[in-house]
Computed example of a mutant assay.
Amino acid sequence: MTTALQIPGYVAGAWNVDGVHSDVSFEVRHLGIAKVRGRFDTFEARIVTAENPLDSSVTATIQAKSVNTKNQMRDEHIHGDDFLKVDEFPTLTFVSTGIRPDGEAFLVDGDLTIRGITKPATLRLEINGFGTGFEGHPAAGFSAVAEINRSDFGVTAGPAGAVVGETIKLTFEIEANLEV
């Protein structure tokens, strides 16, 4: 069983994500030959690291309208009915339901909600480290990746669905600060 002693510098506690030093992004195939990338500019999360790391948890909320692909016309299309339908479903959420070891990493199982549809999703989590942040307060870094099928969440992509891949890769690069 994994214990806190096996994670250098591990600190149990409640953490808030530092939005300035974190990134939530995605990638999808276009025409089957290229990858289109984007990010969400507005998100928040709370991570609770338990004494036993396998009892830890995370809850995250992403503002759907904050999608940014560096192309305003594409972003507006993603806001609409073919994709995220942001006027009706303003947030995407993830709530963990369990954590399992996976070699040097962990698998974080949870419920992902997009367009009001909740499905199980698993993030492959790497703990980048625990250290001291600004003002001497504890900080932690995490990287996580998940792949989801857009159709599972009602994201048809409309007519563009013929050229937009089914698999969406979600990537989370997170720096968090211990609540003091």
Rank of each mutant, 00 (worst) to 15 (best):
V58A: 15
S57K: 10
K70R: 14
V58H: 13
H79Y: 12
V36R: 09
D55G: 04
I62R: 08
T59N: 08
V48G: 02
G80L: 01
A50S: 14
G32F: 11
D55Q: 11
I62H: 08
E51V: 07
Q72M: 07
R37I: 05
T42M: 03
T49G: 01
K35H: 14
S66L: 04
S57M: 04
A45W: 07
T49Y: 05
L54R: 00
G80R: 10
I47H: 04
E44N: 14
G80V: 02
A34I: 11
S66K: 11
I62M: 04
E88K: 15
T59F: 06
I78K: 03
D55V: 00
N52T: 04
E76C: 02
D82R: 05
L84C: 03
T69R: 07
D41C: 08
R46Q: 13
K65D: 09
I78C: 03
I62C: 03
K85S: 15
K70C: 02
H77E: 07
N71D: 14
D41P: 04
R74G: 07
H77F: 12
T69L: 06
Q63S: 02
D41H: 01
I47Y: 04
A60G: 08
E51R: 05
K65H: 09
F43N: 05
T69A: 06
R74E: 03
T59M: 10
R39K: 14
M73V: 14
T59H: 12
L84Q: 02
S56F: 06
A60E: 02
V36Q: 05
P53V: 00
D82T: 07
F40L: 11
D81T: 14
R39D: 01
K35L: 12
E51H: 01
K35A: 13
G80T: 02
V48N: 08
L54G: 00
G32W: 10
T61M: 12
K70M: 09
Q72E: 14
I47E: 01
H79K: 09
I33Y: 13
T59E: 15
F83K: 02
A60I: 13
G38D: 05
V48S: 09
D82L: 08
D75S: 03
S66F: 13
S56K: 08
A60W: 09
L54T: 00
R46S: 08
L54P: 00
N71W: 13
R74Y: 10
S66P: 10
I47S: 02
A50T: 05
S57L: 03
T42E: 13
A64W: 13
D82S: 09
D81W: 04
F83Y: 14
K35V: 06
N52S: 07
P53W: 00
V58S: 09
H77L: 07
E51Q: 11
T59V: 14
F40Q: 05
K85C: 07
T49Q: 04
H77M: 03
T69G: 05
P53Y: 00
S66V: 05
P53H: 01
A50R: 07
I62D: 01
E76M: 13
E76D: 15
F40R: 08
G32N: 11
S57P: 05
T61K: 15
H77T: 10
H77N: 08
P53C: 01
D82Y: 07
K70I: 04
G38R: 10
I33M: 14
V86Y: 04
F43Q: 05
T42K: 15
I62V: 15
A60K: 09
I47P: 01
G32I: 11
G32C: 12
H77V: 09
D75F: 06
V36H: 05
Q63D: 10
